[in-house]
């Protein structure tokens, strides 16, 4: 288990709504705003606003995370647009 996978929820939460650069296995790199980190798998969910208004969601698997660098604090507009992406009010019902 890596250092990243061993963090506790309160440590992971300090990354939420921050812009980060994630270095992953095989030298892959990802940038985006942290939407959440799954406490089971340590997967990092990043959101990015596209020029066409769509949102690109990239998820880096916890086992493949090598390094996470925090960049900017989320600016308020970005926070507004991304922070609620997977929150209950906006989400469709998950039951089927």
């Amino acid at each position: 288990m890596s250092e990243w996978q061993r963090k506790n929820p309160l440590e992971w939460q300090t990354y939420v709504n921050k812009e980060v650069k994630v270095t992953a296995a095989e030298k892959h790199e990802y940038k985006g705003w942290v939407l959440t980190i799954d406490p089971v798998s340590a997967n990092i969910v990043l959101g990015k606003l596209m020029e066409d208004g769509k949102i690109s969601v990239s998820v880096i698997l916890g086992h493949a995370v090598k390094e996470v660098e925090i960049g900017n604090e989320g600016d308020d507009e970005m926070k507004e647009q991304l922070a609620h992406l997977f929150m209950p009010e906006e989400s469709k019902a998950y039951g089927q």
Binding site: P9, W12, Q13, V16, L35, T36, I37, D38, P39, V40, S41, N43, V45, V57, V59, F86, M87, P88, S91, Y94
Partner: peptide
Amino acid sequence: ELRERYLRS
């Protein structure tokens, strides 16, 4: 909070 957001994703 973290797990709920991930499951919703």
